[in-house]
Design a protein around this nucleic acid. Structure first.
Lengths: 161, 161
DNA sequence: GTGAATTGTTATATAGCATTACAATCCGCG
DNA sequence: CGCGGATTGTAATGCTATATAACAATTCAC
């Protein structure tokens, strides 16, 4: 069933400013600006994956499993920043869609290793291409040097010890 | 009751990288970098409001009501990017804590106007100070010009038509 | 005036998590 | 060895934030 959107106001979850409204001192907080930018990024992701059954978190999981074949579910949870139970749900989802498989790990009877299937690999390649294209479009408001600068600043802000 | 944290791995919701893990092409996506930066911002907010009953969304609501006295709940919802029902819950929360009041609006028997109480104003001032201090600390990895640059780039990325 | 739209409200559902508990398994150390 | 503690996957449960839908009261457009 389709749920036609109300005519007035942005749709829920949108990041658009409300014209004529004051935002007080919010823009003074770096965290607020980052939050708005991140939501805009989510919207770009949504548009990139319009008819595809995926979410940012699951896409992250898919990418990480691809880059680390045999990853345990505990480590996947750590990588995603969620509890083990959350990683389990993602792993179930990957397996149910035929994108990944669990194989017993040699030398450890507790842990399973996660491996992408062929289907998972081509699915990831497809989604990656779409997301990249949208990303480019999303970042288009900045010049190429500005984009590089933004990436560097974000990286420096978060990933520097 | 206190829930002591497990010794191993970052706590759920954390943004720390897992050493020795490959993140594949994720860092090529601007959206992923923004997401990580935003989560780091949330962590800074949490630390800033450790013993205070507030959340980023509620802080945003508080700020917006402060900057727009008499705001309707519909408009608050639009500003927060949530449905009306969500704005209602925030308004209920504000009222229950004595931070805001609803007053009938002249000329419109349907809408209520939201107004901060004196208590709400000083509460906001207190939280704002704490968040600002933490924000400064959070942004410390960047030099002052870099911080200004980051703000400009984020603003340009999201708020430019 | 009359029908459509808006507002606040309530009830309900859902997604995404965390938390807890448990069995199986591994590890360190006497 | 053997034993206690840690780790792994898993299932059960619950919480929080949010959307969706429905409703009455009210306003608005024509």
């Amino acid at each position: 069933m389709r749920h036609p959107r109300k005519a007035r106001g942005p749709r829920p979850g949108s990041i658009e400013r409300v014209p004529g409204l004051s935002y007080g001192d919010l823009d003074a907080h770096l965290g607020y600006l980052l939050r708005r930018a991140q939501l805009a990024g989510f919207e770009a992701f949504e548009r990139a994956t319009e008819r595809i059954d995926i979410s940012p978190a699951r896409y992250t999981a898919l990418s990480i499993v691809a880059a680390n074949p045999g990853l345990s579910q505990s480590d996947l949870g750590a990588a995603l920043g969620t509890a083990r139970s959350g990683a389990m749900m993602v792993a179930d989802w990957l397996e149910a869609r035929g994108l990944a498989e669990r194989h017993r790990r040699e030398g450890d009877g507790r842990a399973w290793g996660l491996y992408l299937t062929q289907r998972g690999k081509s699915f990831l390649a497809d989604v990656k291409r779409r997301v990249r294209d949208r990303d480019r479009q999303f970042a288009e408001r900045l010049s190429a040097p500005e984009q590089a600068q933004l990436r560097n600043l974000l990286y420096k802000l978060v990933d520097r010890p």
